[in-house]
Design a protein around this nucleic acid. Sequence first.
DNA 1: ATACTATAGTTGTCAGCTGCAACTATAGTA
DNA 2: TACTATAGTTGCAGCTGACAACTATAGTAT
Lengths: 170, 170
Amino acid sequence: MRTVPRLQKDTVALYHALNELIRIYQFRDRDRICCHDISITQCHGLEGLVHHGPLMLNELADYLHLDKSTTSRVVDSLERKGYATRLVHPDDSRALELKATPAGIRLHQLIMDEILEEEEAVLSDLSVEVRRALPGVLRKLTQAAANRSKRPNVGCSSASAENQAIGAKK
Amino acid sequence: MRTVPRLQKDTVALYHALNELIRIYQFRDRDRICCHDISITQCHGLEGLVHHGPLMLNELADYLHLDKSTTSRVVDSLERKGYATRLVHPDDSRALELKATPAGIRLHQLIMDEILEEEEAVLSDLSVEVRRALPGVLRKLTQAAANRSKRPNVGCSSASAENQAIGAKK
DNA sequence: ATACTATAGTTGTCAGCTGCAACTATAGTA
DNA sequence: TACTATAGTTGCAGCTGACAACTATAGTAT
């Protein structure tokens, strides 16, 4: 009889904190990334290729949570800019073997360095315990959200014609 | 000689956790919100009006971190759908007094209830201490990021012509 | 009062991101 | 040799967002 409202309060607080965090980080990332000849989504794609080795288009699409058509265009951009290569997969002529080029790896490293330097300044303000616990907790939140969004039609019924995208710029 | 690499490791872990969290939550929010006759940005705008009373357009734009022109169009949508009103400000004929309508408040409450219910399920898995600490930590991260992004040209020099937006749909 | 400047919003324009549907091509199977 | 499934690509339409130009009202300095 006391924990329930407590939990609710925590939940509301978390919701707002998360909301604002996401909004802010979108902009921070855009500022950090977009000046480097690359969009946020492209950077995420590049990151996928750098960290998870050669990928097929579908795999990259899964990683990015994007449609394969959108992903294809992301790869277009990366390829055009020389940050990724699109080769026919050795084991399956239908598939692609997407890789980051040396230039792509360098660019990714550069962006990472910049972001991490900044992040470090923030993290050094936090206590060691919190700092240590944070990634795990965030992953937990992520996991929970990911599990739910896999379910079909989670809590949705009516859909409007207008509006379906997320976005921001400056 | 040992804390520095430690911090770096934490930072990298945090970076990736945050990255994925943001990506996932964008989609979760879109799924939760867009089926309700409203886009995510519109929902954020509505939330601003509901929580922070009557606002002028510029204030709402600040809240949303969006250009006033974009904000104006967000308000257009909300008004058209009957979730907000746009009146001339009583103290300044140039300005607007933006308010959520009863329908807007109801819609916002409905969406909040759905999201919070889900969030509660996640939070109840976490220890009380972590749960309690989380919003504060997130706010700290947000604050730090917000402070930095206020500075002009943070770490950026060259900007490409292509790409500057964030986005996702389904 | 009369400019001059600042501020609040709106609208035109342009470009990017996305998903869906349709289509091509290769694999795998019956 | 069909028939079906899978990997990608492209046409298309909608939404997001910023920037710049423009209108209108406020405030300020002659």
